[in-house]
Nucleic acid binder design. Structure first.
Length: 946
RNA sequence: GCCGGGAUGGUGGAAUAGGUAGACACGCAAGACUUAAAAUCUUGUGGCCAUCUGGCCGUGCGGGUUCGAUUCCCGCUCCUGGUACCA
């Protein structure tokens, strides 16, 4: 009796444990660790050049390793690209699927300023954490190819590319970058009159004789006007207190966002990249790319090509000329004033004595507002008259010259010809200051100004009666004939500023001699970031590198100071996709045979927030590298998918004010409550785990609850994922609880990849159940592995081949969520058929392996294979298994479903009609009469109109 | 303002060369197993009406084309991403 009781007790409590031992339930923890280890040991995902196989380059936007670690949103795109990579492996492709880190950046430097911790140390720690987290998810990355932009061995080549840009200019005749040495040769022979190249607007003309007579310094100064990366005076947001340049979005109301220090617009010497030289190629190149149309459109807007004309206005009683850019030169007779940007030097010069006080006060006021403030404050109209008049070259009319802050110094020439009748901003300005409004296009002025692009020109001398296009052509011809203007293409995009006054970035390989920049020698690369005592600007406002003890460069002629600024964040990320092809090369950034083999990225997955920055810069550098013959492609990313951001989903509890009692969601309005964020990790399916809640914080230990049906329901809201909202979900926690395969499947199952969606774990159980059902197919009796070699039935093959077909179609459309559904359907069907046939279960394991690689490998091994499942071939879809002999026809009457008829597919339309009309249900609706019309679509539908 | 994307049950979502709306999953409900709970399994689940086999309504709103519209066209509303005195 006693023994029996103990035995009984033992059985009850250890039943499950024993079952696990002898019945091999799906144990994801064991399986996943085992296979991650095997992949690592066997180098399963090592990629190597293999001309015999077609290549597939699958790339993710590499992350900046932040201190917060990966959250559940980061891996979304990586999982998608991993699925595609593994699918391509099964399809026989040689797949390159690497991962690395964009490891220079501001957060590590800010942390360094606060703590004194070297950014390299912080970065290293963060990278270890990221790598560990990524490895837990079981990605098919070739980790041997990892790159880090902050490693000297990497940024050596970032510096090298900078040097090539410095040594090149853009030749407009060849329409490509050409070595600057050939430009020097041309200067020596002919001067610069015949040279068609992209250069600064203010480049002076000179002859060969003059060139030769110039001093070395003068020659170098002139060459800077042509180099693709150059030092030039740029207007920036300068914050003296922080000692650095701020970007527009770091400035609020004239003060720095961080610290609230005053910010002024200041002209500073900065390095720039002449990306505008590539504007047209960047625009045209978009047409060839398989990118989402919105992203292409964003780039087109960013490049902002406008076709128009440049017109020179003489100033009355002065030698000054005012140059304007306009897209509507056809409205030239409607010009009633000119407007200059407050920053322009010309504006200050044109102020007459009687206007001096007001005009100069206005310029001063405008200067203190950032460009962004000026732009966002559209409603306030402000300006000042200079006192000067310009002459309209078409009719000799005198027109007043104004200063207006709606004119931007950085676009076009910083001066506009105002046509109030046909431009809204000019109209508002003219109304505000009582300036003339003269209509020159036929139409009604009832609703103020109108653009009138399709109208006929009037009040315009010999342009009268012409269309916009005709008038424009005629005007441009006149301007060119008179030498006072020309047709011109203007881009909104500006040259990219390439320096930051920061520490944690690539040093520029440049030293200064007589105030002019020179490149260090290639053999001295990399120019390694020096140690500094603090990561702050020096007392006299120089960048942090000014603190380095020895930051000089020695040549045969002497020792010279090195550049103190560093490169911006986008430098290292603009070419990393080439480095992956040959990551440890010490002789070049990547060997040509390797870049030729791997070519362009076949699939690039990342967020759309990089649409205009990173993607544009990468395309620019790739085109440049192509021009100099360093690579053979001029577009880096053939196909791109933008995954939607995963937003946070916060949970709330409702505390009765002034108490420690919490009310469930449905009852919260019956009490006086206030909402409080609660950690989403102690909430499941929006139900609060009360014990965990009490343990969450000491002050909640004695919390009390008012429940609904014995449960505490939490409120929920979609917000940004952030620590302070307690809605950050760490992939490690999901993996701990459900395993990596479940995480991978669930992230895909959540919805379309490109859609923005909040993270919630409400449906994750369903995915986990699916994996267990899958496992049970191979372990049918008491959880023991058993497989039958008997031939599969028609139904079993049909279930399988439906899934094969669906997966291939979905892969082509990157519709991962629907593939997961089709796997579920397949497994459900096979379960109810009781299928454990090798003929079906072997291909099934291959099918799910891109999504759930660990469990697939385990099943593959159980099936008796010694190779990795990644070596298998994707099962071939056979249409024959899906062919049906019958079809259940929906019969609709007046467009409404009234009956269903199971009929052979071999029937003709007439036979189907016959059958439908004979059906009892249909007869009832026809009420004895004949239908007015019968539509029969064989294999689809029958519709009767009565 | 301009340029994109979107709106489908209680929830995530499926279905568009126009052809059975709501696949798959969550949640919920009922039942089985259990001392109980969890887990698991079975059944049901768009709304309204009906005693049942059934009927009416239903894909943001209003029109249109069509035998037939979530899908195409016109006009709105709301949400969302980008961009913004760009001459």
């Amino acid at each position: 009796m006693h023994k029996a009781l103990i035995f009984f007790y033992f059985c009850r409590h250890y039943k499950k444990a024993i079952k696990n031992l002898i019945m091999a339930e799906y144990n994801f923890r064991e399986i996943e660790q085992k296979w991650q280890q095997i992949w690592k040991e066997k180098g399963t995902f090592k990629a190597a050049v293999d001309p015999k196989r077609p290549k597939f380059y699958s790339l993710d936007m590499f992350p900046y390793p932040s201190g917060a670690g990966l959250h559940v949103g980061h891996p979304l795109g990586y999982i998608a690209s991993d699925i595609v990579s593994r699918f391509k492996l099964l399809k026989g492709f040689n797949v390159l699927h690497p991962m690395g880190y964009d490891s220079f950046g501001l957060p590590a430097e800010q942390y360094a300023i606060q703590t004194g911790q070297h950014p390299a140390v912080t970065t290293e720690q963060n990278i270890s954490r990221y790598t560990e987290q990524l490895k837990n998810i079981g990605f098919a990355f070739d980790w041997d190819r990892e790159v880090r932009t902050s490693e000297p061995a990497y940024y050596k080549w970032t510096q090298w590319i900078f040097m090539q840009l410095f040594s090149s200019y853009y030749d407009l005749e060849a329409d490509k970058a050409v070595p600057i040495s050939s430009l020097v040769t041309r200067f020596e022979q002919d001067g610069n009159a015949q040279v068609k190249a992209v250069c600064d607007e203010d480049t002076p003309a000179f002859t060969a004789a003059q060139w030769k007579a110039f001093s070395t310094n003068e020659q170098q100064q002139l060459l800077l006007h042509y180099r693709l990366t150059f030092l030039a005076e740029t207007t920036v947001n300068w914050c003296g207190a922080l000692g650095t340049v701020l970007s527009n979005d770091e400035v609020k109301d004239g003060f720095s966002e961080r610290g609230g220090h005053p910010v002024e617009r200041k002209k500073m010497m900065q390095w720039s990249m002449r990306i505008t030289a590539y504007a047209d190629r960047l625009l045209k190149g978009l047409d060839q790319l398989a990118w989402a149309e919105p992203i292409k459109e964003m780039q087109r807007n960013w490049i902002g090509k406008s076709i128009g004309a440049e017109v020179v206005f003489a100033v009355k009683g002065s030698n000054q000329k005012i140059q304007v850019f306009t897209t509507r030169v056809d409205t030239i007779y409607g010009v009633t004033y000119l407007a200059l940007a407050p920053e322009s030097d010309l504006a200050a010069e044109l102020i007459t004595e009687d206007q001096r006080t007001t005009a100069e006060a206005y310029i001063q006021q405008a200067k203190n507002r950032s460009e962004r403030d000026r732009m966002s404050d559209v409603k306030t109209i402000s300006g000042a008259f200079t006192g000067s008049y310009a002459i309209n070259p078409f009719n000799g009319e005198e027109i007043p010259v104004w200063i207006a802050d709606y004119v931007l110094a950085g676009y076009g020439t910083g001066a506009v010809m105002a046509v109030p009748a046909h431009d809204e901003r000019d109209y508002n300005f003219a109304r505000h200051f009582g300036l003339e409004i003269r209509q020159v296009i036929e139409g009604s002025m009832e609703n103020g100004s109108f653009p009138g692009k399709g109208g006929i020109i009037m009040n315009s001398g010999n342009l009268n009666g012409l269309t916009m296009k005709e008038a424009m052509n005629q005007c441009i011809a006149f301007l060119e004939e008179q030498g006072i203007g020309r047709g011109k293409v203007q881009y909104r995009m500006r040259d990219a500023i390439f320096t930051r006054q920061r520490y944690w970035g690539e040093p520029l390989p440049v030293y200064f001699k007589d105030g002019l920049p020179y490149l260090i020698e290639e053999k001295d690369l990399p120019l390694v970031l020096p140690e500094v005592d603090k990561y702050l600007p020096t007392e006299d406002g120089a960048p942090p590198l000014g603190r380095a003890k020895e930051w000089t460069y020695t040549t045969e002629t002497g020792t010279y100071p090195l550049e103190l600024s560093t490169m911006p964040g986008w430098a290292g990320s603009s070419w990393y996709f080439f480095r992956y092809m040959d990551p440890s090369n010490t002789n070049s950034f990547a060997a040509k045979d390797k870049t030729d083999y791997w070519g362009a990225v076949d699939l690039y997955i990342g967020g759309s927030e990089h649409a205009t920055g990173h993607l544009l810069y990468s395309r620019f550098w790739t085109k440049f590298l192509y021009d100099i013959g360093a690579v053979s492609i001029d577009e880096p990313f053939q196909k791109m998918i933008n995954q939607g951001m995963i937003q946070g989903r916060s949970n709330f509890v409702y505390r009765i004010k002034g108490s420690n009692t919490f009310v469930s969601l449905g009852l919260k309005d019956t009490y006086d409550t206030s909402a409080m964020h609660v950690d989403v990790n102690i909430v499941h399916n929006d139900q609060l785990n009360l014990e965990k809640f009490k343990a969450w914080r000491p002050d909640l230990a004695n919390a009390e609850f008012i429940l609904e049906d014995g449960k505490y329901h939490c409120g929920a809201e979609v917000e940004k994922m952030s620590k302070s909202k307690y809605n950050v979900v760490n992939p490690d926690d999901i993996i701990e609880r459900y395993g990596a395969d479940t995480l991978r499947l669930y992230e895909m199952f959540l919805g379309p990849l490109e859609q923005f969606k909040p993270w919630n774990t409400n449906g994750i159980d369903g995915v986990y159940k699916f994996l267990r059902k899958l496992w049970n197919l191979y372990h049918p009796q008491n959880g023991a592995f058993a497989i039958s070699d008997a031939p599969a039935s028609k139904e079993e093959l049909k279930a399988l081949h439906k899934a094969i077909k669906k997966m291939e179609e979905d892969m082509a459309n990157f519709s991962f969520n629907t593939s997961v559904s089709s796997f579920m359907i397949c497994v459900n069907e096979l379960t109810s058929l009781g299928c454990n046939k090798r003929e079906v279960l072997e291909p099934l394991a291959i099918l799910v392996s891109p999504y759930a690689p660990h469990i697939a490998e385990e099943l593959w091994a159980l099936l008796g294979h010694s190779d990795s499942i990644t070596q298998a071939s994707f099962p071939e879809f056979q249409e024959a298994h899906l062919v049906e002999s019958n079809f259940e026809y929906p019969v609709m009457i007046n467009g409404k479903l009234r009956a269903k008829l199971d009929l052979p597919l071999s029937l003709t339309a007439a036979e189907i009609e016959q059958a439908a009309l004979g059906d009892a249900q249909v007869q009832k609706w026809l009420e004895g009469g004949a239908p007015k019309k019968v539509i029969v679509v064989p294999g689809k539908i029958v519709n009767l109109v009565v």
